[in-house]
Amino acid sequence: MTEAILKVRNLKKHFYLDSPIPFKKSDQSVKAVDGVSFDVFPGETLGVVGESGCGKSTMARLVNQLIAPTEGTVELNGENLVNMNKEKLRVFRKTIQMVFQDPFASLDPRKTVGELIAEPLVIHKIGNKTSRKERVKELLEVVGLRGSHSGRYPHEFSGGQRQRINIARALALNPDVIICDEPVSALDVSVQAQVINLLKKLQKDFNLTYIFISHDLNVVRYVCDRIAVMYLGKIVEMGTYKEIYEDSKHPYTRALLSSIPKESPNEIKERIILKGSVPSPINPPSGCHFHERCPFAMDVCKVKSPELMDVGNGHQSSCHLLELENNPLSDIPIKKKEEEMECH
């Protein structure tokens, strides 16, 4: 097996609340990311899914060192980025770039597209004016825009085109890893498909590694090789997309999958509808964070927090149900029965 390009171990980020007593650290904190570990291998796409507030975006920013973690390590090509000195970190940042969600907010409206894409090159003092211009032109063509667009301003472009500009900017430094934080959520379906096709093509052409964050399970299934499901700051299940979509071992993942809207008016869905919404991360429920919404919760779930367990094929899941001899989940099929019904 090849060496992981990115190794994240026990990553934590706790945001402390304002303390009622001045100059004293509050004892209440939001545990946005609470002990996350995973590996990312070269050339693969790791998907991160979860509801809003589960810590997916915070995790992306931690991996990139845009915010400093409370605890844990992030190793990129064998070097720990946490607490690295600034100059050295700047060099390492070249290999890890980011594409953000909102294509309208992430481009400076006062700069031309050419300036925006050249900005990372200027910061890292790469090339001179003419060579940068060449590079910008080349990058624009790579993402499917015209080289002559470099003199225009962001407002002249549509959402999908702006996201292409963001991608060109992320590519400018020839990174190894790109973290895509909901890159297509703000786009219309027809344009979404264009951008996803582009991301997949670039991955093949430049051997990129993606961390792909999304709440859209269909997009994740299509784009990713492996998927991590997050709930309240923790990874509750992780495995290849096949394992997750066809043989999920966690009730939360099951519920997420069953809530995907129908694909046709004829489809009959057996839904696990969760009660309530994600609890507050300030006072998360005791034991397994999911027990209050879990239809299969047992007594042990209220007391003991389950650990991630290996269930074979690199598939990990954290649920007390796995310790039972007859797991109620295994009786519930994930695949719908529609196809069978059509056969008869």
């Binding site: 509801e51 709440h215 519920a255 069953s258 809207p261 509808i273 994600v278």
Partner: peptide, 9 residues
């Protein structure tokens, strides 16, 4: 979110 969307629909 999708889970909440299913509830609301």
């Amino acid at each position: 979110d999708v889970t909440v969307q299913a509830q609301i629909l």
